[in-house]
Nucleic acid binder design. Structure first.
Length: 508
RNA sequence: GGCCCACUAGCUCAAUGGUAGAGCAGUUGACUCUUAAUCAAUUGGUUGAGCGUUCGAGCCGCUCGUGGGUCACCA
């Protein structure tokens, strides 16, 4: 092995080799399991009458050794499998002293074993397997981080649990192995994804898959990752959004489409940003942003109902209620109330910058009017949006793919959903006018510095698609990781990613 | 990228600038209903890396690394 092993690991490696010399395969290819821990307990309870089963419940269990308590001529142990933990009871009377000593000395915490016998109740009432045969399934070389559970008044108290975030994220396998609530969190994440699909499928949406490697990136303002196809001599970008491909599908006659997948943005990392993250986008022909708002409320409630069984959740100490209708706040009004500036009274970039200066707010140098509005939103309004809120009607120049309002061409029909002080989703009445769209692309190129990597590249094929005719439609995008944070009360996006992005370590 | 904090045994944590410790895990032994089993004994350290200050550094200073927080960035 290339890495240096600790003395404990070297001892275990030596133990494993000795077992092999004794004819014990430390990694046999097959296991026999008749019951999971839960199934064995359920089978006993079903057969049970007055504390005794009518017929013996014989089971072979398999799992990881989590506790061994030798007591002379008997030994208690716990193994953990996918369903939970179950106790084993081994007796010299049943197994012979030699077998019991083998179990006590050759098996270690973390090993996978299988054990056969009859289910019974101990004097304390715990359903337990009385073991008549056992076998090693996989030897552990590295000791699991010590974590013991103590039950106090029905509550499980963890001792010396693995808590160092770096180890937990870098060695997620160890984190999962010893922290059962981490396993539960990722089961919940899977349930969230399943519920989102169920809801959208039920609404007649078609799940599709579009390219991750794209010759032209677009649909969002973000720096892309660049890669290269060797044989084609072609630079490619990892997608920063699905938007432009999904809307091409509306041109093709698919009226309701959605995609759940990975987006990649080459930007800073933070408690709510990971370089790759899971995005949900859907597009719905003949919907506008108001209908998308209602669909959003229904969808989030559907997920909450199915995953949590309720529509409220406590996030970082504050109760959040997802029940519709969510508060609706016009962006102009929200900024007026929190920053004291009426953006409608500041029609140009300089007007707005002056208004901000007058309030003691330093406008970002070089920012467009839209970016200044975004600054006011992020600094003043966003932190106040704890309960689910739709902010709506956004400035045109930060929304190049959204349709303008009929009575106000400088404002677009767009909303963002905010919960717990951060952005959860983003949606608009999609721009389907190819002439206006081309003008927007050109505007973006003008307004942004030519070196600004976030400027929107022109996508000629997208414009061609739109010229074939795109039905009016409402589009929606949501960070699934952030929804998962909310529903699992996780303060950090890394908690809801199995393998969050971390810097390389020199020693690895 | 800036600033702040952290990094000590496998895990969780101690240690006035003066001999690096505890609990759990490990090892050895006792124990036939235990469950953080208990009891007795015991192994285990390049204190993140390097350089410096000092008679003497886990502790003070500098550089670097990693992580966390925060700001910047992120429609």
């Amino acid at each position: 092995m290339s890495v240096e092993l600790s003395s404990l690991e070297q001892k275990q490696l030596e133990k494993m080799r000795r077992l092999r010399e004794q004819g014990v395969d430390p990694y046999p290819p097959r296991a026999e399991r008749t019951h999971t821990s839960r199934q064995a307990i359920a089978a006993f309870e079903a057969a049970e009458k007055d504390g005794e089963p009518a017929v013996p419940v014989v089971a072979t269990l398999a799992g990881r050794l989590r506790a061994i308590r030798p007591m002379g001529k008997i030994t208690f142990a716990h193994i953990e499998d996918g369903d939970g933990k179950i106790q084993l009871f081994l007796r010299a009377n049943d197994l012979g002293a030699e077998q019991l000593a083998f179990f006590n000395h050759q098996f270690d915490l973390g090993d996978f074993i299988q054990a056969s016998g009859e289910m019974f109740r101990t004097r304390t009432g715990e359903l337990t397997l009385k073991v008549t045969a056992f076998r090693l399934l996989a030897k552990a070389i590295t000791p699991l981080p010590a974590a013991k559970d103590e039950v106090v008044d029905g509550q499980v108290v963890r001792h010396a649990l693995l808590s160092d975030p770096e180890t937990r994220y870098r060695q997620r396998y160890a984190d999962l192995a010893v922290n059962s609530e981490v396993r539960d969190l990722f089961r919940k994440r899977a349930a969230i994804l399943r519920s989102l699909r169920e809801f959208l499928d039920g609404q007649g949406f078609l799940e599709v898959e579009t390219p991750i490697l794209q010759p032209i990136y677009g649909g969002a303002a973000a720096q892309p990752f660049v890669t290269h196809h060797n044989q084609l001599h072609q630079d490619l970008y990892l997608r920063i959004s699905f938007e432009l491909y999904l809307k091409r599908l509306l041109v093709g006659g698919l009226e309701r489409v959605y995609e759940i997948g990975r987006d990649f943005r080459n930007e800073g990392v933070s408690f709510k940003h990971n370089p790759e993250f899971t995005q949900l986008e859907f597009y719905c022909a003949y919907f506008d942003y108001l209908k998308v708002m209602e669909l959003t409320e229904q969808m989030i409630c559907y997920v909450a109902d199915h995953v949590l069984g309720q529509r409220t959740v406590v996030y970082q100490g504050r109760e959040i209620n997802f029940a519709p209708p969510w508060r609706r706040v016009e962006l102009r009004q929200g900024i007026l109330e929190t920053a004291g500036i009426d953006i409608a009274q500041a029609p140009t970039r300089n007007d707005l910058a002056n208004a901000m200066e007058a309030k003691g707010i330093h406008p970002k140098p070089g920012a467009t009017r839209g970016k200044l509005i975004d600054q006011l939103l992020g600094d003043h309004l966003e932190p106040t949006l704890i309960q689910p809120t739709f902010l709506y009607n956004y400035p045109r120049d930060i929304s190049p793919l959204a349709k303008s309002k009929l009575d106000d061409p400088q404002t677009v029909e767009r909303f963002e959903g905010y919960v717990a002080g951060f952005e959860l989703c983003n949606a608009f009445t999609e721009l389907n006018d190819p002439v206006d769209q081309e003008a927007r692309f050109l505007e973006m190129g003008r307004d942004y510095d030519a070196r600004d990597e976030e400027r929107h590249p022109m996508d000629e094929d997208y414009l061609r698609a739109m010229r074939y005719g795109m039905p009016p439609n409402g589009g929606f995008g949501m960070g699934v990781d952030r929804l998962t944070m909310l529903l699992t009360d996780s303060p950090n996006i890394r908690e809801v990613l199995l393998f969050p992005h971390l810097r390389n370590r020199e020693d690895e």
